[in-house]
Amino acid sequence: MTMLLIALGAAVGAPLRYLTDRAVQARFGTAFPWGTLTVNVAGSTLLGFLVGIPVSPAVGALLGTGLCGALTTYSTFSYETLRLARSDRPGRALGNALLSVPATLTAATVGYALAQALP
């Protein structure tokens, strides 16, 4: 049952990541990976919130592992940072790394704090 919940969450998270990335790229261009940053911050916020509630194992599998796991993407963050560095944009590559890591950690902390603030 847990695997099915993870698969269902991922079936929503992966297309949501793709559509969000495309929408952000259409608005802001592709010079910097704002779409990947957006989904990683959103997913980190949601996961922090879920951990802070806490949720049942079933909800954790569906939303935490499935949805957030497919929505967020460390591999794409790594690839895009490398792509920027290799395309003579080392400043943007460094900026992506220096912005993404603290932004996602902060987002998870904020999500957790919001959950803890609930009555």
Rank of each mutant, 00 (worst) to 15 (best):
M1S: 15
T2S: 13
T2F: 13
M3P: 04
M3F: 15
L4T: 11
L4Q: 02
L8Q: 03
A11E: 01
A11T: 01
V12T: 05
G13F: 03
A14N: 08
P15E: 07
P15W: 13
L16W: 15
R17K: 11
Y18C: 03
L19H: 12
D21G: 10
R22I: 05
R22G: 11
V24N: 14
V24L: 08
V24C: 00
Q25R: 14
Q25S: 10
A26L: 10
A26K: 15
R27P: 02
R27M: 08
T30F: 04
T30Q: 10
A31L: 10
T36K: 01
V39R: 04
V41E: 01
V41P: 00
A42M: 13
G43H: 06
G43L: 03
G43K: 07
S44K: 05
T45P: 05
L46R: 01
L47G: 05
L47F: 14
G48S: 08
F49E: 01
F49M: 09
V51T: 13
G52C: 13
I53C: 14
P54H: 06
V55G: 02
V55R: 06
A61V: 07
L62S: 03
L63D: 09
L63V: 11
L63R: 07
L63C: 05
G64H: 06
T65A: 15
T65E: 00
L67H: 03
C68T: 02
C68L: 02
C68N: 08
C68H: 04
G69M: 01
L71Q: 02
L71W: 06
L71V: 03
L71Y: 11
L71G: 10
T72M: 02
T72D: 02
S75G: 05
S75A: 11
S75Q: 04
T76E: 07
T76R: 04
Y79R: 13
Y79V: 15
E80I: 02
T81P: 09
L82Q: 06
L82V: 15
L84C: 05
A85P: 09
A85C: 10
R86W: 09
S87Y: 09
D88R: 12
D88P: 01
G91I: 04
G91C: 01
A93N: 02
A93P: 02
A93I: 07
A93F: 07
G95R: 08
L98H: 06
L99Q: 00
S100Q: 09
S100W: 12
V101I: 15
V101R: 05
V101N: 00
V101G: 03
P102V: 12
T104N: 04
L105A: 14
T106Y: 12
A107P: 05
A108T: 12
A108D: 02
T109L: 14
T109S: 12
T109A: 12
V110Y: 03
V110M: 04
G111F: 03
Y112M: 14
Y112Q: 09
L114Y: 01
L114F: 09
L114S: 00
A115K: 07
A115P: 05
A117K: 12
L118V: 15
